[in-house]
Nucleic acid binder design. Structure first.
Lengths: 239, 239
DNA sequence: GAGTGGTCTAGACCACGCA
DNA sequence: GCGTGGTCTAGACCACTCT
């Protein structure tokens, strides 16, 4: 099967079909997919081919398989989403769970930098979430989050927002965050940081610039975090 | 086959056998392994089982497969090793290649912190590499690297050291770095940093603390880097 | 016991690299 | 044209979960 347009393996086609169905919400987060046998019959391929695809999607964190039970759409639950994308920890490696501090949600026109980052055009509107996150009850991170308003209708009325936004995106807006690019730098705390985080102005803090991408490959969230670095570190494993 | 000791799938056993052979240096970096058929015959399993293992080891960056040619031990080449573990970039994402600045290599007794980090015991010796790395000809990063001397005999005589140490570890000492845990924080530049990196004392810089682990699962390198953050960022993709 | 995913096998055929 | 990995199939049996 070597077409002019190039050859596309069966398992790739099956992969795309299943991803498309997840995007369309055919199965909801936490729900089970049909069994391998059923999918194979339905798609007219062998069970082995379906298995290869389901295994790959599991490796991509999109599905979860449980022997004896079935294959499920992975959920961005509290702990899972947190440990996957929230990288702040104590020096030495102990992972931390932030709690919610005060926050403000606004809707406004996108600025030039935001248009560029999120592939928006003039006149598009964005949601701005400005919030503080606490660790052990003490302010630790200030986050400024920008979302394309078109994809998140009514989000400004959902106050108070949950601690794990990605779970909200997934269940309420059918947007699965699958990867995020982060850029870190060190900056001096401003007077504003002093008020927000309780560190003296001029103290070095971490600036984390994140662009989160959805399963549909859309740039869905731009998040700039300012994190205290006195007793916190950004922890990541390179493989 | 449900033993008391627990059941160990065939493909796991095959996985371990092949990893062991790589550790022992049965095949050198860049060399080809026997074909799937040959391995299957040799190990007394089916080709499908061998394939499953080789695919997994490829995903772990230990092997490389090339259709029509064979399966090869992955090499820590200049560009590969650099892009895998060197995360400094320009804001916006452009990856950078550092060049070698001045460096000093010493051998001395391990300090308490080093013993703890590298699982050493009293009296063990370490190699200390202290070097500057340049970006666009300008000092950008100062690295302090600690290795257990026992694993790197004669490394102090190899001056000048190559830019990519992991390639040296792999080819000369049969030590494959497969993962690294990094912890980042923001600190103020010291007078020493001012001299090394050309930033004013007090300027925020990135402090990167890395523990690198080998295929044998040994803690093999402790590296503390101090990086200018004025026109450089630490870039990472979370998935 | 029925149904699910997990392991393992055997074999056919395709795509690629090279001599 | 041969040898390599890449795709795809069909089927057997095992391990786990639930009823």
């Amino acid at each position: 099967m070597s077409d002019i347009a190039g050859y596309r393996p069966l398992y790739r086609q099956v992969h795309d079909i299943i991803v498309r169905k997840v995007v369309q919400g055919v199965w909801k987060p936490g729900e089970a997919l049909p069994s391998e046998q059923a999918l194979a019959r339905e798609l007219g391929v062998s069970q082995g081919t379906v298995r290869k695809v389901l295994d790959a999607l599991t490796a991509e964190n999109l599905l979860e398989r449980r022997q004896g039970k079935g294959t499920f759409i992975a959920e961005h639950t509290q702990e899972r989403a947190l440990f996957r994308f929230f990288r702040m920890a104590r020096p030495g490696g102990e992972r931390l769970t932030p709690t919610r501090g005060k926050g403000v949600v606004k809707i406004r026109a996108a600025r030039a930098a935001e248009q560029a980052k999120l592939d928006l055009t003039r006149g598009d509107r964005v949601v701005e979430i400005d919030r503080i996150r606490l660790i052990d009850g003490r302010p630790a991170i200030r986050e400024l989050i920008i979302l394309p308003a078109a994809h998140f209708p009514g989000i400004e009325k959902r106050s108070p927002l949950p601690n794990t936004l990605y779970s909200l995106y997934q269940t309420e807006y059918r947007i699965n965050i699958v990867s995020a690019q982060e850029e870190l730098s060190a900056v001096a705390a401003t007077a504003r940081d002093e008020a927000d985080l309780g560190v003296a102005a001029g103290t070095p803090i971490l600036l984390i610039d994140r662009l989160a991408v959805s399963l549909q490959d859309l740039k869905v969230e731009w998040r700039v975090s300012r994190a205290r670095s006195d007793d916190l570190v950004y922890a990541v494993t390179l493989t």
